[in-house]
Design a protein around this nucleic acid. Structure first.
Lengths: 146, 146
DNA sequence: ACAAAAATGCAAATCGTTTGCAAGTCTCAT
DNA sequence: ATGAGACTTGCAAACGATTTGCATTTTTGT
């Protein structure tokens, strides 16, 4: 998903390419981890787009398939750019909060079993993990529940 | 996890066995799917415990390991009784909202790969799925995003 | 450049969830 | 059984993330 594609993506869905959207896209693609609406808002150049605009645009970018919502059981959602079609899972450190991507996903292997067990077709899923990152492992004593 | 265990569980954590907790536990164990705080509140016998009490007790029951929180990307969280130590995943129908349990979980098979890829220890995870349930499959056209 | 469509800023509204505090209930040792 | 202390509840207010109404501004396609 090259940066230039954003305009086409939006046009295809009758959505405009605005300064706010361009900036949000830049911020998301430059971030190494999913960001909350507030974090995104903080990183906007002045004059900052309104926080409500950030929310509206995050939804718009999701609608056109450029952005995905991540829920790490915090008080808010996080968002990340979909750079490749492939989906990604995450693992968050229960001690320091560091968030890494997990590119390994065996869900396909589970799909058959799940479909057989439940009778559902499997259209989407999310898998998020919690653990202790390498830097925090020496201190591992009791991790706060996740 | 027999019903009688609830008292011991609570006592072990210096928590009282109250009418509200007993009722919430009954409601959760009798439900075939995870319930929201509001749904639980609605099912309380009169005089109904306050909704804030429901929230507080759901947390208390989580603290002692009797209840688990489920996030199906709705506007609220759901809660279910932990009847066996084994964890459970869910699949929700994108058409009618039906929620089924998935007892099949291959996460253990993924654990090694994830730990190797990320360097994290894997302490917890959640996996929730979305699809189309058998009754809705004939009508399957375009499922609203999940 | 224009008219129509879409987006934005701002403030107010929503809504799930949490919290302060005074009053009520439960526990446990006596 | 009973009383003090610990824990819980009800109620209303507070919170925080997210959404929305509406008038104004920007973007789009022609």
């Amino acid at each position: 998903m090259a940066a230039m594609d954003i305009a086409n993506h939006l046009r295809r869905h009758k959505k405009s390419l605005t300064r706010a959207r361009t900036e949000i896209w830049r911020i998301l693609t430059q971030s190494e981890k999913p960001l909350s609406p507030n974090e995104i808002h903080r990183r906007l150049n002045t004059p900052k787009a309104n926080l409500a605009t950030v929310y509206r645009n995050l939804r718009a970018l999701q609608d056109v398939g450029l952005v995905r919502e991540i829920d790490l059981r915090e008080a808010f959602k996080r968002y990340e750019a979909i750079l490749a079609g492939r989906h990604v899972h995450h693992i968050m450190c229960q001690v320091c909060g560091r968030i890494d991507k997990i590119r390994h996903c065996m869900i396909q292997d589970m799909a058959n079993a799940i479909q057989k067990e439940s009778g559902f077709t499997l259209e989407d899923h999310y898998l998020e993990c919690f653990g202790i990152c390498p830097s925090c492992q020496p201190h591992k004593t009791e991790a706060q529940g996740a």
